[in-house]
Design a protein around this nucleic acid. Structure first.
Lengths: 150, 150
DNA sequence: TTATTTGCAAAGTCTTTGCAAGCAG
DNA sequence: CTGCTTGCAAAGACTTTGCAAATAA
């Protein structure tokens, strides 16, 4: 019943004549599995791989991230900090996707899942006649720690 | 009682020893006043200015956009299409900010203002102990026209 | 075998910066 | 005058692409 993504999921999804399972792709996914909750950029992943002793080309990291998010294994995020960030995709058909709270003081990224967003989507669809398929929702503010500091 | 932004607002906000009112800054703001509802990138603004016969450096456009959004005259948007986009800031102390619906088929940007988002923010603040100061909310989907085309 | 993938370096896109000349106040 | 702005070109940050060599199936 576990819904955790594993290397097997990758193998599963890459079945077919057009994709291949390569060590590079596996190891990139592994980085995300080993760093749950992190929001990693291509550069981050590349650096972590270096640390682990894998010398993979940065371009390959970019290509793997693109592929993994096309396969819905990773979720692509744009926090407006100048680079794309990825994390394991935790959304399933019936589960609510989570969203981000970014502390503008310390940079910490917290997460939340909330049904209110679904209500909001339903409401928008009704009022605007727009069929929503995806969203990018990020809140900025001060985390509890930084509120105290001030 | 009008809450429309004018060149006077710029003059107003640039009062003080650290900022100057320049023709470049005025004309950049004018572009937004003359193109209500558009979400313009630096390149867009630069192009429009060219068309109007003003030969302003692109770097100056970037600097003006930065300044105008620092002054809350413009609102900065990140639609994830590779460049920052700006529009006149319609948010006031008591008015709700508007948000975006982007059609992934035709690229049209629609807007909505909804109180549900405020409820969502309140809820998040209560549950997560995060003091929200800003947000970036964008929905992607199909506009009514493109739904029919399919 | 053979089409996909990799690694590298080069190119591309958007944005920022350094600096001398220009200009608003 | 004097310090803020401009314009230009160069640099920067992130990402994509072309291509020959390597490799999974």
């Amino acid at each position: 019943m576990s819904n955790k993504i594993t290397i097997d999921d990758l193998t599963q999804k890459l079945k077919g004549p057009h994709h291949k399972i390569t060590p590079q792709r596996k190891i990139v996914l592994e980085v995300f599995i080993e760093n749950p909750g992190e929001h990693l950029s291509a550069e981050d992943v590349h650096y972590i791989l270096r640390d682990k002793g894998y010398d993979i080309g940065l371009a390959t990291v970019y290509r793997s991230l693109e592929l993994l998010s096309d396969l819905s294994i990773l979720q692509k995020n744009d926090f407006g900090d100048g680079c794309r960030r990825y994390e394991l995709n935790t959304a399933t058909a019936d589960a609510h996707q989570h969203h981000h709270l970014i502390c503008v003081s310390c940079g910490k990224v917290a997460e939340f899942a909330d049904d209110l967003l679904d209500e909001l989507e339903d409401d928008i669809m009704k009022k605007s006649n727009f069929k929503i398929t995806d969203h990018q929702v990020t809140f900025y503010g001060y985390c509890s720690k930084c509120q105290k500091k001030k």
